[in-house]
Simulated assay, not measured.
Amino acid sequence: MTPLLEVHDLNMSYPVGRKGLFGTRMMQVLRDVSLSVAPGEVLGLVGESGSGKSTIGKAVLRLIDAQSAGMVFAGHDLNTIPAARLRSLRKDMQIIFQDPFASLDPRKTIRAVLSEALDTHRLHPGPARATRLTALMEMVGLNPSFLDRLPHEFSGGQRQRIGIARALAVEPKFIVCDEAVSALDVSIQAQVLNLLADLRVSQGISLLFISHDLSVVRYISDRIMVLYLGRVMEVGPADDVHFTPRHPYTAALVSAEPSLKHTPQRIRLTGEIPSPLTPPSGCVFRSRCPYALPACANEIPKLRPAGKSRLKACIRDDIL
């Protein structure tokens, strides 16, 4: 199956501080990240804060400019597409933000919020507008009578449902869910996850689901990509990555979950994730890895096969 989204060797750097005698200091936050998302698939991105997850989401939507050897969406090269064509293509690429309240204009009613998206792409004009807005509210489990209320009149879970409705308004093919449930209570998280899972099937959309919580990512994803300090550590089917991790960092994330019955080996990480300004040489995870060898300081591990449909970036085969 031809991927809906395909990214090769994505890199991203930010300038840090003022320009000095030897130029501007650069902080690299993504390093040679490659990924693909098939039509109707959910790819989960998981990792600690600072791993580069949200930067990937913004880069594939062209909300920020990154360096990539290739970034293709629905047959269009996102690196070379003209600005006018990119604006038209944005209808097919939407995002759901982490903070449902901050992402909504507090002065606009929900009717105005949803209509703004439709107006931008000239969709459902005239009498068809009311029908579409009603359908969107029902699609996300909200009463259409709420359309004339303001965002502050809703709970956090309801506001996130409105954010989902806004993303769905233009009938996209692909949605980036950037920590879309992390600001919600656990019980509300489950409701929103179930809603996204149902919409993924009923609307035939693909999701790039970003979270720091591996169990949340596993619940909704078909495949999982594990990131650490801007590099991919492991990729594979969701259940395989969660229950039989092949990389020490993935195993450490599993170990951090409340239930450890399925964990083959408990791994506790010490210290914080290093700064992208001063990453460790060789394998970026070696400074916190309990299995690190002297060779790990000199060699940057490439992604390589680690079982059926699995890839890992580790030079060792004798662990996990």
Rank of each mutant, 00 (worst) to 15 (best):
G70Q: 14
V72A: 08
R87L: 05
M71P: 13
L61N: 09
L63V: 01
N79P: 05
N79W: 01
G75R: 12
R87M: 02
A84G: 02
R62G: 13
T80K: 09
L63F: 08
K91M: 01
Q67H: 15
A84Y: 06
D65Y: 07
D77Q: 09
A84M: 00
A83M: 08
Q67S: 15
Q67D: 15
S88W: 02
K91Q: 13
S88R: 09
R62H: 13
A66W: 05
T80I: 00
F73S: 07
A74C: 10
R85Y: 00
N79I: 02
A66Y: 06
L63P: 02
V60C: 09
M71F: 12
N79A: 08
L61V: 13
R90Y: 03
G75C: 12
V72L: 10
P82W: 03
D77F: 12
V60S: 12
Q67A: 15
A84D: 06
A84E: 05
R90D: 01
L63K: 01
K91P: 04
K91I: 00
H76Q: 14
L89W: 04
A83W: 04
N79R: 07
G75A: 14
R90E: 03
S88G: 04
G70V: 03
L61W: 07
G70E: 14
M71S: 14
L63T: 03
R62Q: 12
H76S: 08
I81D: 01
S68A: 15
A83K: 11
A66T: 04
A69Y: 08
A74E: 07
S68D: 11
V60K: 04
L89D: 05
